[in-house]
Deep mutational scan, measured.
Amino acid sequence: SGNANTETLPSGWEQRKDPHGRTYYVDHNTRTTTWERPQPLPPGWERR
């Protein structure tokens, strides 16, 4: 039932692989990409 990797990503993020097989992350909220895995927001924090 779903990929465990995507469940731990913050809302709006997606994990992808480039043509060389390297994993990167897409932030659909800001339309940016990063090599660093995004950290889920700490409990009690809200994204503004």
Rank of each mutant, 00 (worst) to 15 (best):
S1A: 12
S1Y: 05
S1C: 09
G2V: 10
G2P: 09
N3E: 12
N3Q: 07
N3D: 11
N3H: 06
N3Y: 10
A4W: 07
A4K: 15
A4R: 13
N5Q: 02
N5L: 08
N5H: 06
T6Y: 07
T6R: 14
E7H: 11
E7S: 06
T8I: 10
T8Y: 11
T8Q: 12
T8C: 10
T8H: 14
T8W: 06
L9S: 05
L9N: 03
L9G: 05
P10Q: 04
P10W: 00
P10F: 01
S11W: 11
S11L: 12
S11M: 08
S11K: 11
S11Y: 10
G12I: 00
G12V: 00
G12P: 02
G12W: 01
W13I: 03
W13A: 03
W13Y: 09
E14V: 05
Q15L: 11
Q15T: 13
R16T: 07
R16L: 10
K17A: 04
K17W: 09
K17S: 11
D18W: 00
D18C: 04
D18N: 04
D18I: 00
P19D: 14
P19Q: 10
P19L: 05
P19C: 11
P19I: 11
P19V: 06
P19Y: 05
H20S: 13
H20M: 12
H20Q: 14
H20V: 10
H20N: 13
G21I: 00
G21T: 01
G21S: 02
G21N: 09
G21M: 02
G21R: 02
R22C: 11
R22E: 09
R22I: 11
T23S: 10
T23Q: 02
T23G: 02
T23K: 06
T23W: 03
Y24E: 03
Y24H: 01
Y24D: 02
Y24A: 03
Y24F: 13
Y25K: 03
Y25L: 02
Y25H: 10
Y25A: 03
Y25R: 03
Y25T: 04
V26A: 01
D27L: 01
D27G: 02
D27N: 10
D27C: 06
D27P: 01
H28D: 06
H28Q: 04
N29S: 08
N29F: 04
N29D: 08
N29I: 02
N29H: 08
N29Y: 00
T30H: 10
T30W: 01
T30K: 05
T30R: 07
T30D: 04
R31P: 03
R31T: 04
R31G: 08
T32I: 10
T32C: 10
T32F: 04
T32Y: 02
T32P: 00
T32H: 02
T32K: 06
T33P: 00
T33M: 06
T33E: 06
T33R: 04
T33W: 02
T34Y: 04
T34V: 02
T34A: 06
T34M: 03
W35M: 05
W35S: 05
W35I: 03
E36G: 08
E36L: 15
E36K: 14
P38C: 01
P38V: 01
P38W: 00
P38A: 02
Q39R: 13
Q39H: 07
Q39P: 09
P40K: 14
P40S: 12
P40T: 09
P40A: 13
P40V: 11
L41K: 13
L41D: 15
L41N: 14
L41R: 14
P42T: 10
P42H: 06
P42S: 11
P43I: 06
P43D: 14
P43R: 10
P43E: 13
P43Y: 04
G44H: 14
G44T: 11
G44L: 10
G44M: 09
W45P: 15
W45G: 15
W45S: 15
E46V: 08
E46K: 07
E46S: 11
R47T: 15
R47F: 06
R47K: 15
R48Y: 14
R48V: 12
R48F: 00
R48K: 13
R48D: 15
